[in-house]
């Protein structure tokens, strides 16, 4: 399986060339995908730029003033809900967190829906598959007779996983989904993060290793780290979630000594 992901997080030092006054006169050129699952084309829009404006503001400007039927998802406009993911100049971004002054002044800004999911209309795509995957994960199952006392130290790492806002940017860039469309066999980085949050919960007593290996296809991941690169929550998806999970699966299914040891000691 080819190991390369072509998409990297945009470098943040791009073109801050618009200091001080004079912004207001600036007009930015947007090329936005308009269409549905059958047909579509790129439509050009001119949008006046205000200080501190983000791509989502520009999309809203277009909606209010030019094309009221432009489909887009958003809720919080503050990078908290994960609704507004799109590909901006080919890079998966939260539109509400992508500032126009990250682009140089003459640069055209292309906004496309996430590529790995079927388009519904314009910037909205069908992400329902993710919700189906989630349903199959064994939920939190507390150990018996727990006192519910937990040390902050022991939950720090799990809290990292629980920061996930389900923007599905990681799912979108992962080549196993994007290029090979192994959707039915592979759960994707978002759900490895979720399973890691459950498996490493100090009071969880369920076991999801078999599911990880068989149903969720963690073996397909070849640690390219593209998912980590695009995560807007800066979750170390590969290092902190996927690799430790892979190790647990390997210990269980491929290392006989550890299999015996594991049987003797309780799950940490």
């Amino acid at each position: 399986m080819p190991a390369e992901c072509t998409i990297k997080k945009e470098s943040m030092d791009a073109g801050h060339d618009l200091p001080g006054e004079g912004h207001k006169a600036r007009i930015a050129t947007f090329k936005v995908f308009r269409g549905d699952k059958n047909t579509g084309s790129e439509v050009e829009y001119k949008v006046p730029v205000e200080e501190g404006m983000v791509v989502l503001d520009a999309i809203h400007y277009i909606q209010r003033n030019i094309s009221p039927d432009l489909a887009v998802r958003w809720n919080c406009k503050a990078a908290k809900c994960g609704s507004c993911s799109a590909e901006v100049n080919g890079k998966p971004r939260l539109m509400c967190k992508t500032r126009l002054d990250d682009f140089s002044s003459g640069e055209e800004i292309k906004v496309y829906p996430m590529k790995s999911f079927p388009v519904i209309k314009d910037l909205a795509c069908d992400v329902s598959w993710n919700f189906e995957v989630n349903k199959k994960i064994t939920p939190f199952t507390p150990k018996e007779n727990t006192s519910w006392i937990m040390n902050q130290r022991d939950i720090d790492r799990v809290q990292e996983f629980r920061k996930c806002i389900e923007c599905f940017a990681c799912q979108n860039v992962c080549h196993v989904i994007r290029d090979h469309d192994l959707k039915p066999k592979f759960a994707g980085p978002r759900f490895f993060v979720r399973v890691a949050g459950l498996e490493m919960h100090p009071l969880d007593g369920a076991d999801r290793l078999e599911a990880l290996k068989n149903d969720m296809g963690i073996g397909f991941c070849n640690i390219t780290k593209c998912c980590t690169e695009v995560c807007p929550e800066d979750i170390h998806i590969t290092d902190n979630a996927i690799i430790p999970l892979k190790e647990r699966v390997v210990d269980r299914y491929f290392d006989p000594v550890k299999i015996i040891l594991r049987k003797l000691f309780v799950k940490r």
Binding site: D36, Q63, S67, P68, D69, L70, A71, I120
Partner: peptide, 13 residues
């Protein structure tokens, strides 16, 4: 309302 009934924020508004 412009456009169709498909995912049309103008209509929803």
């Amino acid at each position: 309302i412009e456009g169709s009934r498909m995912y049309n924020p103008g209509w929803h508004m």
